[in-house]
Design a protein around this nucleic acid. Structure first.
Lengths: 166, 166
DNA sequence: GCGGAATAGATGAGCCCTCAACTACGCTTC
DNA sequence: GAAGCGTAGTTGAGGGCTCATCTATTCCGC
């Protein structure tokens, strides 16, 4: 009862060695959790409503658009999009149905495939980009001071070093 | 070509009034996006693997466990979980199947229902809590300095004021 | 008290994602 | 040159979420 506990935690839990969160950590955690959740949902909905493109697909188009010849191996594309192979495979299938991406056999490796951005795909990205950028600016950058933006980058990088140890 | 643009943005885009992101903003944005994405996935996977409970359900159990008589109106529960009514309704149906929550008619409002946490539900939460807290501590708090934690809370609160204007 | 708007919640289709197989090719080694 | 292992990518089942729609109840004004 005296122990304010954690990510939603059971009041009165026994001392079982768990490193529970104190009240301050609890507040910080909730602020992070709720804000990232709401921001993500907001960005996703803005993009989806305006263009019909989910963020995950947008990211794929972006990566391809920046690649030499607008093409990339499936695996590398998955890595860059922080996506599982399976997720990417499903996603590229959908994008193929829309005519935005093509699969092409890879000359150097008979197992491999290249995902190629089509002109239609590039056009779709060009149409979507301003919408998405504006959304990110409105809901994120317009709300934060330069110091907060710097802190956000610093925190993000710190977490990435731990989470994504290439 | 000279303009480094944004959330994945089309090189060479014309000046169409879009407030593109500059290189620094781009970096900050990516750091935030990737770190939150990876952290979320990590927490979700840890909790799911160890307990079979998705984070969204965990949050519901937490909110109920902290409510008077471990019960709450569906709508209020949805609000507190940052969930849509529909999502909560589906989720509570699943939780009912597991025997962790019960639906009960609301005395004061014939339209309303109360979600009630069962003893089994509470037990499931008690079992899951240490796992989840440990995961949050390992992947988040153990990585950040006290200053970074404070900045994280500050940024989160700032964004919430804009996103969740109660 | 009656008609209409607002509120509480449920429901089903469709989409995306995860997880666990599974196929197919390449790379070594003997 | 066949066996075995690792890598590339796909597939399908199952679950969660969104969105639009639907029902039931309450609230309000007259």
């Amino acid at each position: 009862m005296t122990t304010e506990v954690s990510p939603g935690t059971v009041p009165g839990a026994a001392d079982d060695g768990t490193r529970w969160l104190d009240a301050g950590e609890q507040r910080a955690w909730r602020a992070w959790l709720y804000s990232t959740q709401l921001l993500q949902e907001r960005l996703e909905r803005d993009l989806m409503r305006a263009t019909g493109i989910p963020q995950a697909y947008y990211e794929i188009l972006v990566q391809l658009s920046e690649a030499p010849d607008r093409q990339m191996r499936m695996s590398e594309l998955a890595d860059r999009c922080l996506s599982s192979r399976s997720r990417l495979s499903h996603a590229v299938s959908r994008l193929e149905e829309r005519g935005w991406v093509r699969r092409q056999v890879c000359p150097e490796d008979g197992r491999g495939l290249l995902a190629v951005l089509t002109d239609e795909g590039f056009a779709a990205l060009e149409a979507a980009a301003p919408v998405h950028v504006e959304s990110v600016r409105t809901h994120l950058f317009d709300q934060l001071s330069p110091g907060q933006v710097a802190a956000m980058e610093d925190i993000g990088r710190t977490l990435l070093r731990h989470l994504d140890p290439d």
